[in-house]
Structure formats: C-alpha cells, structure tokens
Design a protein around this nucleic acid. Structure first.
Lengths: 209, 209
DNA sequence: GTCTATAACCAGATAGAC
DNA sequence: GTCTATCTGGTTATAGAC
C-alpha cells in the first residue's frame, strides 16, 4: 500500500522565500479562507515584510494559483500510481479510494484550498484546475465500466456513481478535524469498504425493499 | 414521498425589507461567499441604500446568523418529518437520505451557506448551529443501530458510516450545478440506493477481496 | 531581495436630515 | 424607515532607498 506522502508540497521550490511564502499562504488560506487572508498575514507567517510578497509573486491570486496547480498535480499523480498497482477493477477502485480519501484527511489543509477556493482562481488557473479535475472523473468512470464488463460491479448509473464516490472522498477535507479524529488510513479503509459495497454486483436492491 | 419545499425560506419574515435583505444576503453569500460579499452588494440587491441594512440587522454577521438558523431549522424539520414516515430502519434511512440529499441539490444556495460558511459565524451562532448539526448525526446513528439490531443492516462502524452518509449528501451542495444537471429527486433516489447498499447485511466483503 | 513608506481604494458601520 | 454623507480603519499593491 502506498504510504501517504508527508513531505511538504513545496519542498523543492527555490528560493527559500518563495517556498516559505507558498507554505504560509497555504496555511493561512486553509485556516481562514482565501478572502479572509491578507497579504500581510502571509508575509508575516513567511517572515517577510508586506512588500516582500510581491518580489516573488505577482499577486495574492498568483499564490493561490500556484498552490492549486501543485495540489492538483500531487493528488492526481498519487491517484494514478495507486490505481496502477491494482490488478482487477475491484482492487484498482479500492486502491484509488483508499489513497484519494486518505489524502484528503492527511492533507486537509491543501485539500480544502483546492476543493473550496476554486471560484477565487483566475480564469486561466481555473481552466487549468478543471482539466485536471476531469481526469479524476475519467479514472473512476473507466474503472466502473470495466467492473461492469467483467461482471464484478453492477453499477446502473456510472456517471452518477462516479460523482458520488469522488464527492464522498472530497468531503473528508471539510469535516476532517471536527469529527472525532480518525487516522487518514482508517478513513481510507472504511471508505474503500463502503464504496465496494456500493458498486459490486449481487447488491441490487429490491424495488419494494 | 415528501415534496421538496419550494417556498422561500423567509416567506413569513416581516417587514418586507428584512425579508428582502435576508434573501439578498443569501443570494450573494451563495454566489460569491460571505467574505467576498459587501454590505453594499446586499443593500443594492434588496433595493436599499448601504445604510438601510443596519436598520434591520446589526451587522453582516447577523444576517449570516439568521440565514444559518432558518436554514438549519428547515432541513432538520424536513428530515425529521421524512424519517417519521418510514416503518422499518431501511425505509426510514432511505427516506432520510432522499430528503436530505435532494434538499442539498434543490436548495444548494442555502446549503452552501450553512455548510461552508460555518467559520464565519459568531461564536454564539456557531454554537447554535453545532447543536442542530449534532441532531443529524444522532438521527442517522440511531437508525443504523436499529437496523443492526433487527439484522437488516450490518454496519461495523456506526459512527464512521453515519458520518460518511451525511458527508455524501452534504457534498451535493458543493458540486450541484457544475456536474451535468440532474433533478434533486433523481439525486435523492440514487443516493438512497447507494446508501442502502452500503449498510445492509449480506454485503460484507471478503478480507482478501 | 528586502526593507520602510505610502498610494489608491474599499470595507463595515454610523450620524443626522427627512 | 429610508436616505445622503461620512468616519475609521483595513486592503492590495507600488515606489524607491539600501
């Protein structure tokens, strides 16, 4: 099972001031929201003067855009690696859900920013995010169709079920930290179990149940 | 099946200016977020001058608090009515999910405000919201336990599964309007089906599946 | 690259006339 | 209850010295 990446998202960003600014912006956006965060907050957290931000980034929105790009790329890459390790559709979907859900718990800070601040992105950055997000939908839909074909899944509404699966995992970022704490891995395991129950064959409900 | 309430949340608020301000604030908060909304936006949408807001409400936060109270009360009442109409745990949980999920689609504006602007509430309003929100958790957990007792459900992790069920439905408010449009009722039906698959007995997975 | 100082603007909220 | 006018303070971003 793939371990959850614990290194900072920005570990290889140079120079150090840019890296500290990205981390400071991420922390502030996650804690208080993009709009409620001031560039002074970010500068202070990064140990710079208010003007220091603009040496490294053109605007507050640029910082958000950079976080969005790195965040989306990271979870997309992790998801693709996780699913590639599975053999059959059940195994592959299960690995995807475990990784995707656990990431939203372990990295609920970044996750909150990339999932809930989309409307604050510039049009260009929004389009960039939208492209990557479509990939997640394609990944899950493809796996559901494959499972339907081999007969291990019985998913009547592939698009709706894929949306529900992603939605379930994404929302972890919202509640994580408020509900009684569970480890990201425990959430991943629980969710993989729940999702497999939702999709596999033999689970059709009677109409009058 | 209970029809989704389509009347305005604030239909019986008097005077008319207060009602218009609440609706204006709701529309603005839903569309652009609480922090990105100015009191001038709200006043203009309500057909008042910027100062007109403060005749009826003490602050922008008061408007949010009022929306949160009415929103939480509305969906809580609808949920309790829906579940009361069911006979057995499967039926009751199914009715709850249909109503709760469909409401988050049909009223994704209010839903977004009450689900994603919690941190903007005053401490008093936050506590009020938290009490009501605990009720949803109790409702679902109680039904899961009842189903376990009668043997129709086989839920190993009641707290975690209840959280997942609520989470799945709440997240409808986030994506509704971005994904290809489905009717709120269709979402309610799909989600009730998915949730029943998740919880009922006979659905346990092999460890090495 | 970093700082201090500041420009230019916009926010929430209030005063006081009508 | 509603308005116009305004107060007060905070916001993003820039200028220019070091």
């Amino acid at each position: 099972m793939a371990a959850i990446d614990t290194a900072s998202l920005f570990a290889d960003v140079e120079p150090a001031s840019s890296r500290r600014l990205l981390q400071a912006a991420l922390d502030a956006f996650a804690a208080r929201g993009y709009r409620a965060t001031t560039t002074r907050d970010i500068a202070r957290r990064a140990g710079l003067s208010p003007a220091g931000v603009y040496v490294h980034f053109g605007s507050k929105a640029d910082l958000l855009g950079a976080i969005s790009r790195v965040g989306h790329d990271t979870i997309l890459r992790m998801s693709e690696q996780a699913i590639a390790q599975g053999e059959d559709p059940g195994d592959r979907l299960s690995r995807f859900v475990r990784t995707f859900a656990a990431w939203h718990a372990a990295h609920h800070g970044v996750a909150r920013v990339i999932q809930y601040e989309l409307r604050e992105l510039t049009p260009a950055a929004f389009e960039e995010a939208r492209e990557r997000r479509r990939r997640f939908d394609e990944i899950v839909q493809a796996e559901l169709r494959r499972g339907n074909e081999t007969g291990v899944f019985a998913v009547a509404d592939v698009a709706g079920t894929a949306l529900a699966i992603l939605s379930l995992c994404i929302d972890v970022a919202r509640w994580y930290g408020t509900a009684p704490r569970r480890s990201p891995a425990a959430i991943g395991d629980l969710y993989a179990d729940l999702v497999l129950r939702m999709v596999r064959s033999g689970g059709e409900l009677d109409e009058d149940a």
